[in-house]
Write a protein that binds this DNA or RNA. Structure first.
Length: 278
DNA sequence: AAAACCGCCTGTCGGC
DNA sequence: TGCCGACAGGCGGTTT
């Protein structure tokens, strides 16, 4: 599912191909995608406009438009944003929206499960997009220091897995990268956040950054639906240590990997390397 | 504050 | 082979 590395990969792949191209037409095939606008309003504001920049915050993509507008996209579970240089390629079955650049191609939003969203907001008016407005620190930014991370954990009894998934604390982690980071740091997903030692929180802080960086370098993880902005699969699925590997041998110690529901999510871990009780 | 649950959707998979 | 329920898990919302 698209998490920070996947969304960042989509951003980087689209950046050279979707900016400064006049949008000649917008086709909305699934109007509920738009959230806070009617199809008519949306088309009126976007047709004849153009994307000036494309940035990312957490799992959100933000396209700036002329006229102090921003288009905020979220891929949720199965969304794809793919650039097609050839507009004659037939639409995929679950195409929700198309931004048509005429002879310059098209940007298509494809989404099997239709959870994805597009919000058109005045520039910086992120309070209109609640999840974006309340996002926590960017884990790859300079603000995500070890001190900042330890402050997030201090005194909290909530399970570390749940805290890492909380977008208002740290922006962009999802189920895959939380499990991989906890494994890398040797920490059980059910450990109370505040119970981590200084050494453990230091290892986890480093693991989060390393796992995310490596996943970006590998264009993200394609288990099923995720594609880059060029429609290609990522390759980090070949480098996952434990996600989806229940019953296989731990790559570090050889024990049988397990999974269980933690914070409502299937959570993978090594019972030997990641002890619940210390 | 936090956990547990539901709703939003479709495709896939295991069991019978 | 077909049907059926469970499951995948991001986020917003409500309830406990």
């Amino acid at each position: 599912m698209p998490e920070l590395p996947e969304v960042e990969t989509v951003r980087r792949s689209l950046l050279p191909v979707v900016l400064h191209k006049p949008i000649e037409a917008v086709h909305i095939h699934y109007p509920r995608l738009l959230h806070n606008r009617s199809v008519g309003e949306f088309q009126e504001l976007v047709v004849n406009n153009q994307f000036l920049d494309l940035t990312r915050r957490g799992k959100y993509l933000i396209f700036s438009l002329e006229g102090d507008l921003e288009l905020v996209a979220h891929l949720r579970m199965t969304g794809r944003l793919i650039y097609y240089s050839d507009a004659s390629i037939p639409l995929a079955k679950h195409t929700s929206a198309v931004f048509d650049f005429g002879a310059e191609g098209a940007l298509r939003f494809e989404d099997v499960r239709k959870f994805g969203t597009l919000d058109l907001v005045p520039k910086g008016k992120y309070e209109e997009v609640r999840g974006l407005y309340t996002l926590g620190v960017e884990p790859l930014s300079a603000e995500f220091t070890l001190d900042h991370f330890q402050d997030l954990l201090a005194g909290r009894s909530t399970k570390i897995k749940g805290l890492l998934l909380d977008q208002t604390k740290i922006a962009g982690l999802g189920n895959i990268y939380v499990d991989e980071s906890l494994f890398e740091a040797g920490i059980h997903p059910e450990r109370p956040a505040g119970s981590l030692s200084k050494a453990e929180s230091k290892r986890l802080h480093r693991a989060i950054r390393e796992v995310l960086e490596l996943a970006i370098a590998n264009q993200g993880t394609t288990l099923r639906d995720y594609r880059t902005g060029f429609g290609q699969e990522g390759s980090f699925q070949n480098r996952l240590q434990i996600y989806g590997k229940k019953g296989k041998a731990c790559p570090r110690c050889g024990a049988d990997l397990e999974h269980k529901k933690v914070a409502g999510r299937t959570s993978h871990f090594c019972p030997a390397c990641q002890r619940e009780l210390i």
